[in-house]
């Protein structure tokens, strides 16, 4: 087990290095001059050259790469030209908001998607199955910005149940920052009112973000449940008199969860990378907004930082999925 984990961690390190190479290469072939950007529109040629030297942008690429990697190893992701703060500080500020959103979304996706998929499989080709399938396809097909605005109109403007945007009302005292995730921090501090406020802000964007993920979890879980429910060991369990509920919820679900888990892992990475639309609609100050505004400004260090962070998260998620596979499926435990 330990050996397996160490192997996977080493492999993750290797993949991360690959990602570093790619982000570095991409940021250097992009047709933009960071030195000119930093110097501002009115700068003279000399000023731009001075800044170029200061940032080391006049050095040969291999040397720049070595300096970039050494910086990374020391936790230095460079400095944002737009915010003028170190990228690490910016990430520490924006990432918790996104993480909070994604965690809540994934919770919705799993808690709704898995049972709905099971129900759909058990009632295969009957009305509830067709209905869930129709809804699932719609959830994937309809764009997040449209859905988000629609829900805002319904729940915030018409019904006035939920706030339109942001993470917390101005009047609500924020919790002392520990993780940067308001839900967690306010729960830790015991500020239940703040927790409620934060939750009411988070629920709509998290729901909108979860839709495509929910739908694909539902579809995969449905397909797997149908497959598993027709397998021999389910026939045997029925023949031995095990109740239908127990067969579906225990015997079949654990088998069906293996591919579902893979989808959850993939969707986790996908969600982190696609929060920008939702963050824009709900004015959620996360890394999606940060990355896009930096990219538009031609500011590459933050974009590279965000890319690495999302990549790292994706790899960690897949590592966790692999470990959970071993927990769920004893065949993989011995194979390792």
């Amino acid at each position: 087990m330990l050996r397996f984990v160490l192997q996977r961690v080493a492999l993750t390190g290797l993949m991360l290095f690959g990602l570093v190479c790619i982000t570095f290469a991409v940021s250097n072939v992009a047709p933009s001059d960071p030195a000119a950007l930093a110097a501002g529109p009115d700068a003279t040629r000399d000023m731009v050259e001075t800044i170029r030297r200061e940032y080391g942008l006049d050095r040969p690429l291999p040397e720049q790469f070595v300096r970039y990697v050494t910086g990374l190893l020391q936790g230095d992701l460079g400095r944002s030209i737009v915010t003028t703060r170190p990228v690490v500080q910016d990430l520490a500020r924006y990432f918790p908001a996104t993480l909070e959103l994604v965690l809540l979304s994934m919770t919705f996706g799993v808690l709704i998607g898995v049972p709905a998929g099971m129900l759909s499989a058990v009632l295969k080709n009957r009305a509830p199955d067709h209905a869930t399938r129709f809804i699932a396809v719609s959830l994937v097909a309809l764009p997040a910005f449209w859905f988000g605005i629609l829900l805002q109109l319904l729940f915030s403007v018409h019904l006035e149940w939920l706030p339109t945007s942001g993470r917390l009302d101005v009047a609500t005292p924020p919790p002392p920052p520990v993780t940067g995730m308001l839900l967690l921090d306010s729960a830790l501090a015991g500020q239940w009112g703040t927790l409620g406020g934060a939750l009411s802000h988070a629920v709509l964007p998290a729901l909108v973000l979860s839709f495509p993920c929910l739908a694909s979890i539902l579809r995969v879980n449905r397909a797997e449940m149908i497959e598993v429910l027709s397998s021999d060991y389910i026939v045997a369990a029925r023949a031995h008199g095990v109740s239908r509920l127990r067969i579906i919820c225990v015997h079949a679900l654990r088998n069906a969860m293996l591919p579902t888990l893979a989808i959850i892992g993939l969707r986790w990475g996908w969600m982190l990378g696609s929060t920008v639309l939702v963050e824009t609609v709900f004015d959620w100050p996360g890394i999606g907004l940060y990355a896009v505004s930096s990219a538009i400004a031609g500011d590459f260090k933050p974009v590279m930082g965000v890319t690495l962070l999302i990549g790292l998260n994706f790899m960690i998620a897949n590592l966790v999925v692999d470990l959970l596979y071993g927990v769920l499926d004893p065949r993989l435990r011995t194979a390792q």
Binding site: D232, V235, A236, A237, R238, A239, H240, D329, R331
Partner: peptide
């Protein structure tokens, strides 16, 4: 099922739940 009629099947490889 099980008390009146009990069944055993052809392929023991696939009639036990693998997980």
């Amino acid at each position: 099922r099980g008390h009146g009629v009990a069944m055993i099947f052809q392929d023991p490889m696939t009639y036990l739940n693998p997980v």
